[in-house]
């Protein structure tokens, strides 16, 4: 995988998720960060830090990105959400416009 095709998402605890740029762009917020004109650090290095999203939640979000791509390509499975993380996940989803 070429480096420019991926992005690195970093959780509050510093855990790094390297995922396809295409997947990350499912989030409107991340899309804006990566494509906005001007030389933001995010655009240049292809990495975004989320000081307010913990690792568990960020992992779930990454799963959603890939699930969403699958869904769009016609594979309509169910996306499971654990009840105990739902509220926190919601706040992150709200922030990420996802």
């Amino acid at each position: 995988m070429k480096k420019e095709d991926t992005v690195k998402l970093i959780s509050r605890e510093g855990f790094e998720f390297i995922i396809d740029k295409k997947a990350a762009m499912v989030s409107q917020t991340i899309r804006n960060m990566l494509t906005s004109p001007g030389s933001f650090a995010e655009t240049e290095h292809g990495q975004v830090t989320f000081p307010e999203i913990n690792t568990t939640i960020l992992e779930k979000i990454c799963q959603y990105f890939y699930w969403s791509l699958q869904y769009a390509s016609g594979k309509e499975t169910e996306f499971h959400i654990e009840p105990e993380i739902t509220l926190e996940l919601m706040m992150a989803a709200n922030y990420l416009h996802t």
């Binding site: 959603y64 996306f79 959400i81 996940l89 919601m90 989803a93 996802t98």
Partner: peptide, 12 residues
Amino acid sequence: CPSLMELCIHRV
């Protein structure tokens, strides 16, 4: 495709 927000709301 439902947004993550929609899925969460549905779950809640």
